[in-house]
Write a protein that binds this DNA or RNA. Sequence first.
DNA 1: GCATAACAGCGTACGCCATACGCAGAGGAG
DNA 2: CTCCTCTGCGTATGGCGTACGCTGTTATGC
Lengths: 253, 253
Amino acid sequence: MAAKTDDSGPVLPPAIESAWGLRERPPKGPRPGMSVPTIVDAAVRVADADGLAAVSMSRVAKELGAATMALYRYVGSKDELLMLMVDTGYGPSPGPPPPHDDWRAGLTRWAWAEHDVLRQRPWLLHVPISGPPITPQQLGWMEDGLRCLDGTTLAEGEKMSVLLLLTGYVRNEATLTSQIAEGSRATGVEPSEMMPAYGRLVARLIDPARFPALHRVLGAGVLNQDDDPDDEFTFGLDRILDGVEALIRRRAG
Amino acid sequence: MAAKTDDSGPVLPPAIESAWGLRERPPKGPRPGMSVPTIVDAAVRVADADGLAAVSMSRVAKELGAATMALYRYVGSKDELLMLMVDTGYGPSPGPPPPHDDWRAGLTRWAWAEHDVLRQRPWLLHVPISGPPITPQQLGWMEDGLRCLDGTTLAEGEKMSVLLLLTGYVRNEATLTSQIAEGSRATGVEPSEMMPAYGRLVARLIDPARFPALHRVLGAGVLNQDDDPDDEFTFGLDRILDGVEALIRRRAG
DNA sequence: GCATAACAGCGTACGCCATACGCAGAGGAG
DNA sequence: CTCCTCTGCGTATGGCGTACGCTGTTATGC
C-alpha cells in the first residue's frame, strides 16, 4: 500500500515550521504576548550590539521585558533560536541576477552580497552550523545563486558544488578579516598594526633555517603593507571563478 | 638609542612560549607532577573519544587523575589549552614536497594531508579560531605549503593568498561532510540516507514556482545518489587549482 | 642544618549558563 | 458555568570556567 502522504519524513521543529507559515495558532488559551519573530529580532539586536557570546536566553528575555523561561514557549531550544537568528540575520536574498548578466557577473554579485552581510553581522560566522539550510531565506539565497548558473551547461550537481565552493570561500574570507578586527578590539592594537605585529612576532619565533619559505615571505613585507581587505577578497574570488570558467568551457566543449 | 632586544612586541602566553622551547624551568619548588604536553595529550584523547564538547577542564583533569584547578598551573585558560590542542591535533606537517613534484602535485598532496587530519579529528573544526597561527606545527604546515609554490613566479603575497584559499576550502569541505556524519549519529539515520532525506524535506517545503532552480536541482536527484565524498572534495580542489594555474600562467606571461 | 621563599596541588566559592518541571491564571468551547 | 488548554514564569538542577587562598614540598642562602 502506498502511504497517504510523505509527511512521515524528517520532523521539523515547530518554530521552523512556523517560519514557513505552516503552523496555525490554536484557538484556545490566553493570547500570546510575544511571537517567534519578536524573540528572534530581540536576539539579533543583542548579537548586533554585543556579539553572539552575549546572546543568552536570559539576556534576550531581558531585552523583551519577559522572564527567561517564557521564551521556551516559542522556541524549543537555544540552538533553534540560533538557527532562526541566522535566517533573519542573513536577511532576504539579493534577488535573481539582472537579466543580461552572464553567470560570472551574477555570481560575483551574489558573493559580494554575502560578503556584505557578513561584514555587517560578523556574529553570523560564530553560529555553529549544524546542518544544511532549511529556513526560507537561506534557501532563497541558494535559489538566487543557482539561477546565476541557469544559462550554463553545467550539470545540476556541479552547479550545487560551485555554490558550495563559493559560499565557503566567502565565509572563510570573512572569518579571517573579522578575526583581525576582533583581535584588534581585544588587544587595543590599531587594526592596521595587527598584521605587522603578527609578522614581527612570527619573525621572532621562527628559525630561518627551518622555515626558509616563511622567512622569505616575512622578509618581503607581505604582512606589513595593509592592503584593502576588499582586494584580498577579490583576489580569491577571481581565482575561484577562473576555475569555474575553465570547467564551463570544458563542458561547453 | 636602539632597544636591546625587540622582545617588547606582542606577548605570548607562557604555555605557548614553552611549546617553542623558550621557557626554562625555574629551579625552586616541588617537582611538577605533570607537564603542558601531558595535559594537552589528555585533552586530545578526550576530544578524540567524545568530541570537543566533552573537553572541560574537570574532564581533562579526571583523565589525568588530578584536580581541576591543578591544570591552571600549566595553562593560563581553557582557550590556551584549545590552541595547544589544535597544534598537537594537526600533528607534524606533511613535509616538504617531493623534489620532482610540480606546484600542483605538491599542493594537492598538501591539501589532502589536511583533509586526512580533519577526517581523523573532526573536532578540530569546532575549535573557535581566534587568530592567525602562532604555534610551531601550525607554522610548519604553512612553511610546507609555501615551499610547494617555490618554483612559481607568484609574488610572495600571492603565495600566501593561495594557501589561505586552499586551507579555507579544505576546512569548509571537511565541515560539511562531518556535519552529515554528526547529524546521522544524532538522528540515527543512515549516513547514506542523510542527504536524500534532506532533499525530500526541502522538496516538501518549497513552492516550485518561487524556487524553480532549486526545484530543478532536487528533481535531478542531485542529493539522492550518494557520491563518494572524496570525489566531491577532488572536484572543488581541482576548480581552485585550475584558478591558481590560470594566475600562474598569466604571471609567467 | 636550618630558615626562607618560590612553587605545585587543589578545595572552596562565585557567577553564569541552558533548561526540566510544575504551578497560577487567562480565556475560548461546550 | 465548567472545563481544558495554553501562556507566563518561579524554582531548582547540574554543568561550566576560573579567582583566591591554603597546605605542603623543595632547592637555595645563611
